[in-house]
Nucleic acid binder design. Structure first.
Length: 366
DNA sequence: ACTCTGCCTCAAGACGCG
DNA sequence: GTAATTGAGGCAGAGT
DNA sequence: CGCGTCC
């Protein structure tokens, strides 16, 4: 569930760490995206009516492919270079949380059965969405699709969000795009929300800058992590009676979780038994991620023949749509490499295309 | 008043045609 | 072989 | 914009 109430807390207490940006201003940028989260959304919404989904001839769902295909084209056309990061094994501490979600899905499955019996359309719609889960098959389909499109895929050893943040910290990508606030807790230096929202919705991209946020909150990164744990995260319960406001006050006042625990009134605030805040802290601070320095992220040319085989022959896509999309990708690639070339001639000091010294990329938008 | 809880709810893509 | 999200906002009620 | 379609 991310971090409870963090958006509002930052809006109230660190407004300068959040900036509205235009979608177009990310031209040429490398952006890390949590793939499983995207796939989940596609499965819920793409081409669904009741329990019916988009399928191939064999009756297998293709909603995730349709969604992933068009979204990725949209990003590439905007000159954005997406990296999709796939989940590995969740950490043990998250197991209890996952168990809860699992039982909720079981409930929904029962509700769905009842609704289907009675024939209540609205309920069928509602409950069937709640039974959605991302299977390894969905993940493999999408990996295959992305590789054929020439888009890099990263397999995280554990949490995708943590791996995204690590890519960002290592300056292999400019920012992490997600709706999940714990990207910041994992230490992503820049974090984008609403990047994928259509411009028709009038919601601007919101860019969070962690160093600015820390400066405004007057906290160190370690203190920020403690703040997030106190607000409530996926890894451990929060303390009853402590919400975002109180958490911020306590961290500012005492400086660290240890000091807070020593000083607060334990009558008033019941600390849960075996409260694993240290473990949670470790998962945020040193999550299990890969950092293979040698592996360069590469955006290759699309494999047209492979795409036609996979999408048209195996999954029933319209062939015109696929060939047109391949053209779009090629054009987009040319444009963005041209853009980079011009940029290099304008700014000889720039050594790579990631990092703080690259804001001049914005000149392309006008 | 302010804050937090604990419920509840919902919505979640992208495109093109008219 | 298996399992796998997440906000956000509303509103009543209680504790400080 | 609203609405149907994508597979």
């Amino acid at each position: 569930m991310g971090i409870k109430g963090l958006t509002k807390l930052l809006a109230d207490n660190a407004p300068r760490g959040m900036k509205e940006q235009k979608f177009e201003s990310y031209f040429g940028r490398k952006i890390a995206i949590d793939a499983s989260m995207s796939i989940y959304q596609f499965l819920i919404v793409v081409g669904r009516s009741g329990t019916e989904m988009l399928t191939n001839e064999a009756g297998e769902t293709t909603s995730h492919l349709v969604g992933m295909f068009s979204r990725t084209i949209r990003l590439l056309e905007a000159g954005i270079k997406p990296v999709y990061v796939f989940d590995g094994k969740p950490p043990d501490l998250k197991k209890q949380e996952l168990a809860k979600r699992y039982s909720r899905r079981e409930d929904a499955t029962d509700d769905l059965a009842k609704a289907t019996e009675i024939g209540n359309k609205e309920d069928i719609e509602k409950f069937s969405k709640r039974t959605v889960k991302v299977t390894p098959q969905h993940n493999d389909d999408c990996k295959k699709l992305l590789r054929l499109m020439g888009v890099p895929v990263v397999e995280a050893p554990s949490e995708a969000e943590a791996q995204c943040a690590a890519l960002c910290k290592a300056e292999k990508v400019y920012a992490v795009a997600s709706e999940d606030m714990d990207s910041l807790t994992f230490g992503a230096s820049r974090f984008l929300r609403h990047l994928m929202d259509p411009s028709s919705k009038k919601i601007p991209v919101m860019e969070f800058d962690i160093s600015q946020i820390l400066e405004e909150l007057e906290l160190s990164m370690d203190q920020f992590i403690d703040l997030c744990i106190l607000c409530g995260c996926d890894y451990c319960d929060s303390i009853r009676g402590i919400g975002p406001q109180t958490a911020l006050k306590l961290v500012r006042q005492h400086g660290s979780m240890e000091s807070i625990l020593e000083n607060i009134n334990k009558e008033r605030y019941q600390i849960p038994d075996d409260w694993p805040y240290e473990e949670a802290r470790r998962l945020f601070k040193e999550p299990l991620v890969t950092d293979d320095e040698q592996t360069e992220l590469k955006w290759a040319a699309p494999d047209e023949e492979g795409l036609i085989n996979f999408l048209v022959k195996e999954n029933g896509f319209n062939i015109d749509r696929v060939t047109k999309a391949v053209e779009k990708i090629k054009t987009a690639k040319t444009k963005s490499s041209q853009g980079r070339y011009e940029l290099l001639s304008k700014n000889l000091l720039m050594v790579n295309d990631v990092g703080k010294n690259c804001h001049s990329l914005n000149f392309f938008k006008s």
